[in-house]
Design a binder for these strands. Structure first.
Lengths: 248, 248
DNA sequence: AGCTCACTGCTGATGACGTAAACAGTTTAG
DNA sequence: CTAAACTGTTTACGTCATCAGCAGTGAGCT
């Protein structure tokens, strides 16, 4: 059974990659296909934008084309691959960071801003990319390349640049998580219930009680990306300053 | 229908909170219960540790007690609440950070290390906490309080301390995500396939090609927590230095 | 022109999931 | 000792991804 699963997965990796990179040869004989993987992915994206990723079932996506769920399997190996196509579909082409100026910091900031914009426009992207992916499409690689390119002038090692990249991606994904979690009504409920609990147990949670009283959990108008990014990039700057003089 | 759902959710919040805080009054009449929410959560944790969160179905958890799935609903309102109990179950009591010394930085580092250890021991915790939670249990609040307490001597505002906390939690969750994603065999496959792709498209991804060649994606023995935490805390230190003199 | 067969899309079935409903058995308060 | 409260069970429903098998279609070859 494990054997079968593994063989199937291996097949899927190939199929998934061919799909993502558009390297599939189309058939000549038989009826004209009424769909394409791309159109299917677009419909799935529209569905996810409107109702969330959990609403994206093969049935509902197929319904957008008035077609049975099984019809989709003629175009896409399975749901996992469909999700990969959705990810590629919402990513723009490789971002041009030169508009932000010359330094690594403005460029990486620009990268983060654009990346964050994508997650804001498509909050399901977080859950979609959290599913274990075995291959990246050309656009994902393009974004990765742009960020690494921006970091080249820092003088950091390749491994350090990769680490910094991961930190920034991580920051954005965390913001996206907060965005997904957030629900004004529910937030109010949380504050109310947690307030009640803290009243009853303020001795157990003194710092939290003080923080709540000081408004640490009140909604803020500030762009949430700024604080985190400034902290991280300040930290990176410190690293550069420390390593530079020693000839790193 | 939406009405029904909302009413049901409201009921669940109450039930969930009572469960998490152990504030449920136990019945006197009727047969002795053979289970407790706590024991059920423990069994679910064992299952998740062994086979992952997706293996935790009501059926399998019930199977651990040789009981039907529906029996669990006498103790737990539903699966979401069971997951909440699982989260509380794997969290230790409020961590004592004083062992790390006096400064905010060693204490927060200690907090991060312990937190990271929990995620390492129970990788499913990431997915479990990603599900929208409406209430926190006493242990979750305890960890939160400990981190906020460690940040009090920084002189930062309450909102800033909260932001820093979110940054550190985010870092750990990102590491946990990488841990979940990682699969040596699959990683090798990724490197092979991406290598092939880069050979074919090295002009499109020059920075990435260089980075791969320089070993930026090679496995490292270093503790992955250190780099990210040092960057973030350096950035926080920069903020403190900047705000302090101005009388913030 | 006609045949073949790769290809499309369909129906139906399978097994997993969470959980609602209804029922049978058990214990304790009155 | 009866009735209420409680436990655990069986059955059933709706949803999901996906497999197997069938009918129709149309390009390429003879």
């Amino acid at each position: 059974m494990a054997r079968t699963t593994k063989a199937k997965e291996a097949r899927d990796v190939r199929a998934s990659l061919a799909l993502l990179w558009g390297e599939q040869d189309r058939p000549t004989r038989g009826p004209k296909p009424s769909l394409t993987p791309h159109r299917i992915a677009e419909a799935a994206v529209a569905l996810a934008d409107a109702e969330g990723l959990e609403a994206v079932s093969m049935n509902k996506v197929a319904g957008a084309f008035d077609v049975s769920a099984m019809a989709l399997y003629r175009y896409v190996p399975g749901k996992a691959e469909l999700v990969e196509l959705m990810i590629e579909a919402v990513l723009a082409e490789r971002p041009d960071l030169s508009v932000a100026g010359d330094g690594w910091r403005p460029q990486l900031t620009e990268w983060a801003r654009r990346s964050w914009a994508v997650y804001q426009a498509h909050p399901w992207l977080l859950a979609a990319t959290a599913m274990r992916r075995q291959a990246m499409g050309p656009r994902q690689l393009g974004w990765l390349d742009a960020a690494l390119a921006a970091l080249e002038p820092t003088g950091l090692t390749a491994a350090q640049r990769h680490q910094v990249f991961l930190l920034v991606v991580g920051l954005i994904r965390n913001l996206a998580q907060q965005l997904v979690d957030f629900d004004a009504e529910q937030d109010q409920e949380w504050n109310r219930l947690t307030g009640e609990l803290l009243d009853r147990h303020s001795d157990r949670f003194p710092a939290l009680t003080k923080a709540v009283a000081a408004g640490a959990f009140a909604p803020t108008a500030e762009d949430p990306l700024v604080f985190g990014l400034d902290r991280i990039l300040d930290g990176v700057q410190t690293l550069i300053d420390r390593e530079g003089p020693r000839g790193g």
